[in-house]
């Protein structure tokens, strides 16, 4: 995949990192302001897609990226289930009820960034999952068209 013109490349260099950071901010702020794992995850995927579209890459580099991102996707969903069943796991050591999706952390004061028990954690894991899933979808289509072009040569 060829990259785009130098104008796009330079602007992407400046702005991609900031978009990524904005996605992270939306993700961790999900219980206080509009946003959350789904919104932040899509924005993070958008920053990576911007990088790939602007700079381009050869097929091997893209395949490596795809493997890594589908690994992160699997990790995100695994951590989500692990956190959701946290109360069951901890009940062997501590005095918790054995309930799936029990919020086992303290709730804190509503409105602070460290509050709402495990909701910020779940937001982060959903963000990982959604970002990696959308980026993998995009890469699957790009790699497909790359291979077609290679065959033509």
């Amino acid at each position: 995949m060829k990259g785009m013109t130098i104008i796009v490349k330079k602007v992407t260099q400046i702005i991609a990192g900031v978009i990524f950071l904005y996605g992270l901010y939306i993700t961790i702020q999900g219980h206080l302001s509009p946003g959350g794992g789904f919104a932040g995850g899509t924005i993070i995927a958008g920053s990576f897609i911007l990088l790939v579209l602007a700079f381009g890459n050869d097929v091997l580099g893209l395949v490596k990226k795809e493997i890594r991102s589908s690994f992160i996707e699997a990790l995100g969903i695994f951590l989500f289930i692990l956190t959701a069943s946290g109360a069951i796991i901890l009940s062997f050591y501590l005095n918790y009820d054995k309930i799936f999706f029990k919020n086992f952390l303290t709730k804190g004061v509503p409105g602070e960034i460290v509050s709402a028990g495990f909701i910020p954690l779940l937001n982060i894991f959903i963000g990982m999952e959604v970002a990696a899933a959308l980026f993998t979808l995009f890469l699957a289509f790009v790699i497909k068209s790359e291979e077609k072009e290679e065959k033509k040569k």
Binding site: K10, I14, G17, F20, L24, L51, F55
Partner: peptide
Amino acid sequence: ILSFLTSLIFGRYFL
């Protein structure tokens, strides 16, 4: 933490 993560991933593309 988050800025550190950002610079770790996107640092090599920065101007």
